[in-house]
Amino acid sequence: MTKIKICGLSRECDIDFVNRAKPDYAGFVVNFPKSRRNVSPDTVKKLAARLAPGIAPVGVFVDERPELIAELADSGAIAAAQLHGSEDEEYIRKLRALCSIPVIQAFRIKEARDAERAARSSADYVLLDGGQGEGRRFDWKFAENFPRPYFIAGGLDAENTADVIEALHPFAVDMSSGVETDGFKDRKKIEAAVAAVRRFS
C-alpha cells in the first residue's frame, strides 16, 4: 500500500486541492528562497492548519537550524521533517534531541554508492531523488531491492506512478512539478495522481 506525498504547497488553494484529493502527506518548502515554492514558517503554520484530518504536514528544509524545525514541530505545524541539504548524522542526532517527529533524509541518486549511503542513514525514512526538487528522474535500477522503507521522487506524475509502484513498491511516492501547470499546483493533476496511487491500495 504505497502512500503519496504532494510537495511544494504554497497557496491556500493548494491546500483546498489536497483536501479534496486526500494524499497521505502534504509538503512545504520552508525558508529556502532559492525555491519558487518557498514559504515562511508563519505561512506553514497557517497553511497546515487548513489541512484536512488524515493529511500529515511535512516541512522540507535545506540546512535549516534544528531549533526552527523543533519549534514548528512543537507548534503542531509539521508532523515530519524532510532534510534536503547537507545534513549529516550529527545533525539528525541534534534534531532528535529537540523533537520527536519522524525524520526523512533526501539523497540525490546518481550511482549505486549514493543508494548505499542512503541505506545507511539513521533517519526514519529516506527519500531517493534525482535532484533537489527539479523533477529530475534518476535510474530506478539503483532503488531495486532497497533494504528499507523509502520515498521516491523525481519526475513522477499520474502517468508514470503506476510504473514505479509496480517495479519498486516504495513506501511512498513524492510529487511536486509533476502535479503542476505553468509552475503552479493543478487540482486535476493532483487528483489524478492520488487516484493512480490509490488503485494499488
Rank of each mutant, 00 (worst) to 15 (best):
M1A: 12
K3P: 06
K3N: 08
C7F: 00
G8M: 04
R11I: 11
D16V: 11
F17R: 02
V18Y: 08
K22D: 12
Y25D: 09
F28T: 15
F32T: 08
F32E: 13
F32S: 14
K34W: 05
K34R: 15
V39E: 05
K45H: 12
K46W: 03
R50P: 06
R50C: 11
L51N: 00
P53N: 05
G54A: 07
G54R: 00
P57E: 10
V60L: 06
D63G: 08
R65I: 07
R65D: 12
I69M: 04
I69E: 01
A80H: 12
A81Q: 09
A81W: 10
G85A: 07
S86E: 13
D88F: 01
E90D: 14
Y91E: 03
L95R: 09
R96S: 04
R96G: 03
A97F: 11
A97Q: 06
L98K: 13
S100A: 06
I101G: 07
P102D: 01
V103E: 13
I109W: 00
R113V: 15
D114M: 00
R120Q: 13
R120T: 15
R120K: 14
S122L: 00
S122K: 09
V126D: 05
G130N: 04
G131I: 09
Q132K: 14
G133E: 03
E134I: 03
R136E: 13
F138C: 01
F142C: 05
A143G: 05
E144F: 05
N145E: 11
P147G: 03
R148T: 12
P149D: 14
Y150R: 00
F151W: 10
F151M: 02
G155F: 01
G155S: 06
E159G: 02
T161P: 06
D163P: 08
D163G: 08
V164R: 02
V164W: 02
I165T: 09
E166N: 14
A167F: 05
A167K: 14
L168E: 10
A172N: 03
A172K: 00
G178C: 03
G178W: 07
V179T: 10
V179P: 04
E180G: 01
T181Q: 08
T181K: 11
D182N: 15
F184D: 05
K185M: 08
R187S: 08
K188I: 13
E191T: 09
A192N: 14
A195W: 11
R198G: 07
R199K: 08
F200D: 00
